[in-house]
Amino acid sequence: MNQTLSSSTPTSLSPESTRLDTEAQSSIGNSMDTETDSITASETSVSKGSRSGRLPGDLAMWIFILAELTAFALLFSIYAVNRALYPDIFAEGQAGLDITSGLANTLALLSSSYFVARAVTSVEHGNNRKGFYELLAAIGMGAVYLVIKILEYKHSIELGYDITTNVFYQYYYLLTAFHFLHVILGMIILAFVAIKTRKKAYTPDSIMGLESGACYWHMVDLLWLILFPLVYVLH
């Protein structure tokens, strides 16, 4: 029985019982008794054959990614509609943004995605140490993004622009801050996954947790790829 050790926070909270759960009075077939569930801490994952290729990472993470993508798609569309409704406020607001910091942020996130991709490649070849350092580099680039973004916010707040200033700044702050928080969540996931990579929890055969974390981080980068032109470039 294969041992998929994806990210396993202490499972004291809910050791998964993996017995077929009948709990009916009678027993099934000739199994000795249905009642005493042997609590096996192992985590078995059902994977039906892999003829049609395999989704990297965990389906649970992908459902989370799809939900986030849907939420942001709605946010982007509403932003775009409001930009069309109030072109002058948005034009004036966008002019106030610093394109270079936007560009730097995009380059930082692209590079961190690159490092994460390298890390997954490394672990696939069994080189966990190299993968660990690449993940650290990715987190570092993420930190660069955070710093640039905080400076940007400080600058525009000093100019007196707040989330309630006008319709542009309401959308600007809401969209970018919401993405900012997702970068932080992504970095926490990357740190978590990096520690497990360091502890050799991932092997070329069991890499699902790392792939899930990587896919989440690439999604965060994907969102910024749309945000950058939408907010900074197109005005």
Binding site: N2, T18, G49, S50, R54, T121, E124, P204
Partner: peptide, 18 residues
């Protein structure tokens, strides 16, 4: 009585590499 078909979740051959 664990699940019926158990196979290595993602053996190297089964998945496309990075």
């Amino acid at each position: 009585l664990n699940h019926a078909e158990i196979e290595p979740a993602n053996s190297r051959s089964a998945k496309t590499l990075m």
